[in-house]
């Protein structure tokens, strides 16, 4: 009985699927799917190496500090970094005094309550604060940016396929649209052609426009546009995954221990089974 019912159910499902398949196949032959323009012109992120790559990856603190400067002087005009606190900057090599100064001189103050009147107010940031948000809310952000929303950058290298390579490619990927690009895909007003962006036209104004845009301290590589893009991408890897070095170090310790323990477990296992031919 069970098998009879199963057989009928099976025939039914197979029939419905076969009908779907035939319909799909007919459509596929009659009207083959066209490659979209995005598909044709979109490019995968470029290969770019960072010190934090791979199982031995670590942070290059000089680079992260340069990247922080690029963020502060360029990106922070529109992009928040809301999950990072000023005190976190100690991890990339800033001293406590430097952090206090960075927080106090930040281009935005922290929302607070006036202790006398109880009204909304602002106060200078302190080390324990998160980096203050650029806009009060999404509506304000869109209103200020031609209806585009500048995303928070705290997790950007984990929140995009391609990670830091995507950020780097996007920053260095602005170019003139190719001649063969159809007219309806050409950037409209306020948009810029960038083949690394999913729909090719990006609302972000090219942020890194000139070499030396951010003043790097002596002893650092020259602040070319490529170098600045690399540095800020590296900084954003840290912002998204500040525990990366701790994770790698603990990982090696744990895995070496486990290999040793597993080898011993293997020997003990062989040992115990020895009398069972």
């Amino acid at each position: 009985m069970v098998r009879l019912i199963a057989f009928l159910v099976g025939i039914g499902l197979v029939g419905v699927l076969a009908f779907s398949l035939i319909t799909g196949a007919v459509n596929f032959i009659a009207d083959p799917p066209q490659a979209t323009v995005e598909h044709e012109f979109h490019e995968e992120p470029r290969d770019v190496a960072f010190a934090s790559d791979g199982p031995f990856g670590h942070f290059d603190r000089q680079q992260l500090q340069r990247g922080f400067h690029v963020y502060r002087d360029v990106c922070a005009a529109c992009h928040s970094l809301g999950l990072v606190t000023f005190r976190d900057l100690e991890q990339i090599g800033f001293s406590e005094a430097e952090i206090d100064a960075i927080a106090a001189q930040w281009i935005r103050e922290v929302p607070s309550v006036n202790p006398e009147t109880g009204e909304a107010d602002t106060r200078p940031a302190i080390a324990a604060d998160r980096i203050p948000a650029v806009y009060a809310n999404e509506v304000a952000a869109r209103a200020a940016n031609n209806n585009a929303l500048p995303p928070d950058l705290s997790l950007i290298t984990k929140a995009r396929e391609g990670g830091a390579a995507y950020v780097y490619s996007l920053l260095t990927g602005y170019q003139n649209p190719p001649a063969e690009l159809p007219a309806e895909n050409r950037p409209g007003p306020g948009l810029y052609y960038n083949p690394y962006f999913a729909n090719l036209n990006l609302a972000m104004t090219p942020p890194l426009t000139a070499d030396g845009q951010v003043a790097y301290a002596a002893g650092n590589p020259p602040a070319t546009r490529d170098q600045m893009a690399r540095d800020v991408s590296a900084f954003l890897i840290w912002a998204a995954e500040p525990k990366l070095e701790e994770r790698h170090a603990l990982g090696w310790a744990v895995i070496i221990f486990l290999i040793f323990a597993t080898a011993l477990a293997w020997l003990a296992y062989q040992n115990i089974w020895r009398d069972r031919h």
Partner: peptide, 29 residues
């Protein structure tokens, strides 16, 4: 197991004790 022969008992015990001890260290860590 009771049927283990006399020979090699110490080495066997050592291996088993070592394996269990290392596992215990891992557990404590």
């Amino acid at each position: 197991p009771a049927e283990l022969g006399e020979g090699g008992v110490r080495r066997r015990d050592f291996l088993n004790i070592a394996a269990v001890s290392v596992a215990a260290v891992g557990g404590v860590a």
